[in-house]
Design a binder for these strands. Structure first.
Lengths: 131, 131
DNA sequence: CTTGACCTTCCAGTGAGTGGAACCCCCATA
DNA sequence: TATGGGGGTTCCACTCACTGGAAGGTCAAG
């Protein structure tokens, strides 16, 4: 099948698929007219990639996971390690964002948001005594 | 003062400060030897930038906030609008990450993580029926 | 005079694509 | 037969917010 159909099935933009080929994540055949010819196994791989990326795994994580996926003899511990590390990174990010949100939500609440110039948000960002 | 001291005071790497000059966020004077000469007002600006960036505002947000900060006549509503929009973006991100975390944490928990090859994480990423 | 810490500019790379130009291919219709 | 539209192809540049490194200039101390 052509790239358009593969894109639809995998739920990825065609551009992204070309990019994935570029960096060696997939490796479709070519028709005589130069068009990429995707087998079901390619689409399967792309679907795997789309899901892993949606879970926030980096491309390099995906490369490793894909290799493990294709190696039916791998130890589940190897996969779990990657997933667990990623999980920890996500938790750090969540905590960071929550602390941003708390600060910002405080600031937004104390700001009148009217025509007057007095603004606690700018005051806090600019005042030397603040954190 | 030189860039090193300004960097220390503002809590930003010197490289970042040069970059901020490059994109027109700050505009320090120059000594006769070509070194950047930062006034207190420059450092104040840089500190403002460091805080706004730490709260996750984009550079373009910062540019606008900085302009509002310098305009003592601005309406606090203008500032509040930016902050509120940003707050909403943060909340979306938090929700996304939390949903990732839940999925991933489920997978990690159901994976034995031992020598055996069976791995629910890869199964879920690869199986056609899963989402 | 040399050493080392600082400063300068410029170029390239990061991650994960996205946008666009310029061109090719194929099918259907007037 | 022209032509129009909807695929496909490559390649280059751009995104965001820096960061690393090379090659070199400046300055104070020993």
């Amino acid at each position: 099948m052509n790239i358009g159909e593969a894109a639809k099935k995998a739920g990825l933009p065609a551009k992204t698929i070309r990019y994935y080929e570029d960096i060696g994540l997939v490796n479709p055949m070519r028709d005589t007219n130069g068009y990429r010819a995707f087998r079901d196994s390619d689409v399967h791989k792309l679907t795997f990639l789309a899901r892993a990326r949606a879970l926030g795994f980096t491309i390099e994580d995906c490369r490793v996971l894909l290799a493990l996926w294709e190696d039916t003899d791998r130890a589940s511990a190897d996969v779990r390690k990657i997933a667990k590390e990623h999980l920890e990174q996500i938790e750090v990010k969540i905590a960071d964002l929550q602390s941003m949100r708390d600060t910002l939500s405080n600031l937004v609440q104390t700001c009148a948001g009217d025509d007057r110039p007095d603004c606690p948000i700018l005051n806090t960002l600019g005042k030397s005594g603040s954190q």
